[in-house]
């Protein structure tokens, strides 16, 4: 009796504590989300104005003419995530295995150091580096390695470069945490049982640090799909991504229902990725 009362009281006070967050999220997240969802099925009457009847027109366009951009968003995000993983895992592993605590802290500090400069500024810097008259082309031409400047800017390549550059720390940090928690006695055990370094890594270290890999991949993939500053500055028309389309619909075009449909689609992509993340994580833990 008393116990049940105490439990109920606890639940009530828990709810009370969560109330500000619930109100905040309800007003500024769930409600707008609902509006976006409803808008995506409405008709565009004029710039910035929507009306009935309901229509699937905007989704037809999303998966029709814009499917190229959708598809590009996905593959650029996947490639960027994979590259982040290939660079980030060894880096995180290196940092986590330094004996000297001071060295470890310094390395981590350097990983997050770019955040001290505005993201926009850093992305502009890439324009200077990659441009036709940019630093890279100038050096290559100066060395006589190429005759005409390479087209680096305004390509998917430039977008991937920018995304990897921008989101690498989000891959490094969770993997670092995983490797840091990893007990190297398991490597001793693997060696003891006849596994060489490579087998020990793939059979023992990697599987046991996968939570970090999954978390890092989710943290990189999700902002990549939604990226719009990077493709805007580095991608040109060749590297246009779904984020750019959305910003255009809500900006210049003022096509609210189309923008909403694109937004809902992007959210679905992210949700599929998150679902995969949860599923993979669960399968690892469960039997």
């Amino acid at each position: 009796m008393l116990e049940a009362q105490a439990r109920r009281r606890q639940q009530r006070s828990g709810l009370l504590l969560a109330l500000p967050a619930i109100i905040w999220l309800g007003l500024f997240f769930l409600l707008p989300l609902g509006i976006v969802g409803v808008f995506s099925f409405l008709t565009r009457e004029a710039a910035g104005i929507v009306s009935l009847p309901f229509t699937l027109e905007h989704y037809e366009r999303t998966f029709g003419v814009f499917s190229v951009v959708l598809w590009r968003s996905v593959w650029i995000s996947v490639v960027s995530t994979v590259i982040c993983l290939l660079i980030g895992y060894p880096l995180a592993f290196f940092i986590a295995t330094r004996q000297n605590n001071w060295v470890r802290q310094l390395c981590l500090f350097m990983v997050v150091l770019p955040f001290w400069t505005n993201f926009l500024v850093r992305t502009y810097a890439w324009r200077i580096l990659l441009g036709d008259q940019g630093t890279i082309n100038a050096i290559l031409q100066g060395l006589g390695l190429i005759d005409a400047p390479l087209t680096l800017l305004n390509t998917p390549f430039a977008v991937i470069l920018g995304l990897v550059y921008g989101f690498l720390p989000f891959m490094v940090l969770p993997i670092y945490a995983s490797v840091d928690r990893f007990d190297f006695k398991y490597v001793d055990a693997a060696h003891d049982l006849g596994a060489n370094d490579i087998k020990a890594f793939f059979r023992v270290v990697l599987p046991m640090t996968l939570p970090g890999v999954f978390a890092g991949s989710a943290l990189v993939f999700i902002p990549c799909v939604g990226a719009f500053v990077t493709p805007d500055l580095l991608g040109g028309t060749q590297g246009l991504m779904i984020g750019n389309l959305i910003s255009r619909q809500f900006g210049q075009s003022l096509n609210l229902p189309l923008g909403s449909a694109l937004s809902v689609t992007m959210m679905l992509i992210v949700m599929v990725a998150l679902l995969a993340y949860v599923r993979l994580g669960n399968r690892r833990l469960g039997g």
């Binding site: 007990d183 006695k185 398991y186 001793d188 055990a189 693997a190 023992v204 046991m208």
Partner: peptide, 8 residues
């Protein structure tokens, strides 16, 4: 091993 180091 001391705490067995069984692969979890």
């Amino acid at each position: 091993f001391q705490d067995y180091a069984l692969f979890p």
